[in-house]
């Protein structure tokens, strides 16, 4: 009934110490491993036959592949395709972890800021590293838009640098907050059913139909949000990578 309880990390068994910190195999880890297994199985088993006329599973596997490939190609160009496995991994990993949260007794790995922040920082440093290796110091042209009058240039550059540095924050908090808020809302409405039943008896259980209908609607919305946030996370990754590939504004 506690809407926060669902975000609790449960230590399933300890694995040892890493410095001062004790490392556990947790419910979060279990769902991450499950995501790896499911996604790999889905793609490998789906396309194992390699039929020219695909079955359902093969169609779905090819669809995800084409979907991410189109997303990357349209935002970062043909050169961006070298990051295809990277973007595909990020998108499908986040999508599956978001979706797991909607399964009853599931756990939403992406509702923890540490996970989304790590992924966002990974993207941030990939962009920074690749941009510097590829373009050297020309990469910093990214902060100097063309055709801006000289007297406001310092201010523009400062804003550009600030917005570049704040990218991982917005990138990670957007996903984290959406997942968190949606699941809290679901649990709050679910809690209403129990409260009504407990407080009003039979009438309350009948009245519980209303929050239950709300949960059904919210679950549908949350599925959309889970997909959309994974998509947003991936497309922002593509856009940031495009900056590393083509730093000229």
């Amino acid at each position: 009934m506690d809407p926060i309880h669902q975000f609790q990390i449960v230590n399933l068994f300890p694995l040892g110490k890493f410095g001062h910190a004790e490392i556990f195999f947790t419910n979060s880890a279990a769902f991450m491993v499950l995501a790896v297994v499911l996604l790999t199985g889905f793609l490998v088993i789906g396309t194992a036959g390699g039929r020219a006329v695909p079955g359902r599973l093969q169609s779905a596997a090819e669809l995800t592949y084409e979907f991410v490939a189109d997303m990357l190609r349209s935002t970062a160009g043909a050169e961006g395709m070298r990051f295809f496995p990277y973007v595909f991994t990020i998108f499908m990993f986040v999508l599956l972890l978001n979706m797991f949260g909607l399964i009853p007794f599931g756990f939403t790995v992406t509702s923890h800021i540490i996970i989304t922040a790590t992924l966002a920082l990974l993207v941030f440093f990939t962009v920074l590293g690749y941009g510097l290796i590829r373009h050297g110091l020309h990469f910093f042209n990214l902060f100097v838009p063309k055709g801006v009058p000289v007297y406001i240039l310092p201010m523009i550059v400062a804003i550009e640098i600030l917005s570049f540095i704040s990218r991982p924050i917005s990138h990670s908090v957007r996903l984290f907050a959406n997942m968190l808020a949606g699941h809290i809302a679901l649990k709050v409405f679910a809690g209403f059913i129990i409260l009504l039943g407990g407080a009003l008896g039979a009438i309350g259980w009948v009245g519980g139909v209303l929050p239950f209908a709300m949960i059904v609607a919210l679950t549908a919305l949350e599925m959309l949000v889970a997909f959309l946030q994974a998509y947003v996370f991936a497309i922002l990754t593509c856009i940031y990578l495009n900056d590393a590939i083509h730093p000229g504004h």
Binding site: S28, M32, H112
Partner: peptide
């Protein structure tokens, strides 16, 4: 919970 999550991530 961060170390465990980070390691597994």
């Amino acid at each position: 919970t961060f170390p465990s999550q980070l390691v597994w991530l």
